[in-house]
Design a binder for these strands. Structure first.
Lengths: 206, 206
DNA sequence: GCCATAACTGACATCAATGTCAATAAAAAA
DNA sequence: TTTTTTATTGACATTGATGTCAGTTATGGC
């Protein structure tokens, strides 16, 4: 007679939001450590201790997981930019503060690298939330400058474009490029802040 | 009795260098059109009309093909930077010329996107040839400025750093970012050139 | 012309990633 | 408690990318 040794396997069961949160967090680490190809269902599943089928259940597909990852990191980038805006609106921060905030936004959690991945993958729709944050940055700077000559308004947009391009570039190739030029880690920020101080239109401070 | 219908299949046979050149050219197009995941042995093989086994024969492995692609595009980037240096040494070019040259170098043939791919893939050794080109750029600018105060030397390195960061950033996210700010296609170059004119140390022109 | 070299191919084998499906177990609802 | 819902799993199937191998054909050197 065969003994049915059906020892009931204990399972942990998390709320769907928690399950998704855990998976996205793991996927983010994998992306930054091993690049885009490292983000696979199997890798994430093993990392957080579930089966890859479980991930498909929660995200629908591998593309769904990647999409959720993009959304999460774009959200973080947007939040970081919004924080920079808020700080700009309250403080009397020098240009260096603004530059640091934007550089940090692109650097923290590999947001810059992720943005590059999104661009290279082709679907730019994930970047939509960034648009509002960038425009908020423009408005905040304009307000901070007080009443500026309307003719100087384009300069603010130029400044934001320049800071964003530099911060993005720094997040991706900053380390190797600074190595080529024997520059320290803060060189990018320092240079950009210096240029910004020269170029931003002066205005009557509040 | 079976008739051996061995109609001899006609094959074309190229010199190995030509075969490699064709494959790398195809791989580059695939990379820029479809992103890193689009560069597969099967895709390249079908594109140039050979079998994927043939590519393995010439490049040893898929990684070998990717490495050759990286080498090819880094070579192009280096050449473009060297051309910018040469132009800088002969002409009386305005800052805008220099900025255009560097922006073009990162833009042409998707060099910037490829550099991002290399960085995200993790093996930075492929970027080694760029180091010499970047340093050459610094020296060329210093010569062009003539005898500058030695105390101003760091400013040249700073200038190269922010031009390179901006050009690289522009090559990757320039289009979508400019879209967010309602800027035209030349905005990035214009802003950087303007800042450059302000920041470079003045010196007695030859 | 003849032969050695190597460019080239087709037919496999392998592995990883994705996805399907039925069954199971945990939690909520009744 | 009983029922329903659903998070979770294991056992498949499928597809694509990579790689191996033996054999075939083109080309240069003799």
């Amino acid at each position: 007679m065969s003994i049915k040794n059906t020892s009931p396997v204990r399972r942990r069961r998390r709320a769907p939001e928690e399950a998704r949160r855990e998976a996205v967090a793991s996927a983010r680490v994998l992306l930054l450590e091993g690049g885009p190809t490292a983000v696979t269902l199997a890798a994430v599943a093993q990392d957080i201790g579930v089966t890859h089928t479980n991930l498909i259940h929660h995200f629908g597909s591998a593309a769904g997981l990647q999409s959720a990852l993009m959304g999460s990191m774009v959200e973080d980038l947007t939040r970081a930019l919004d924080r920079a805006v808020a700080r700009l609106r309250t403080d009397e921060g020098a240009p260096m503060e603004l530059v640091n905030a934007v550089f940090d936004a692109f650097d923290a959690g590999g947001a810059g690298k992720l943005a590059a991945w999104i661009v290279m993958s082709g679907d730019l729709s994930h970047l939509d939330p960034v648009r509002a944050a960038v425009r908020g940055l423009v408005e905040a700077i304009q307000e901070k400058l007080g009443d500026i000559d309307p003719a100087d308004a384009p300069q603010v947009r130029d400044a934001v474009l320049f800071i964003a391009l530099s911060a993005f570039g720094d997040a991706l190739i900053g380390p190797p490029l600074r190595g080529m030029l024997d520059q320290d880690a803060d060189a990018g920020r320092r240079v950009v802040a210096g240029l910004l101080a020269q170029s931003l239109p002066r205005a009557a401070k509040g």
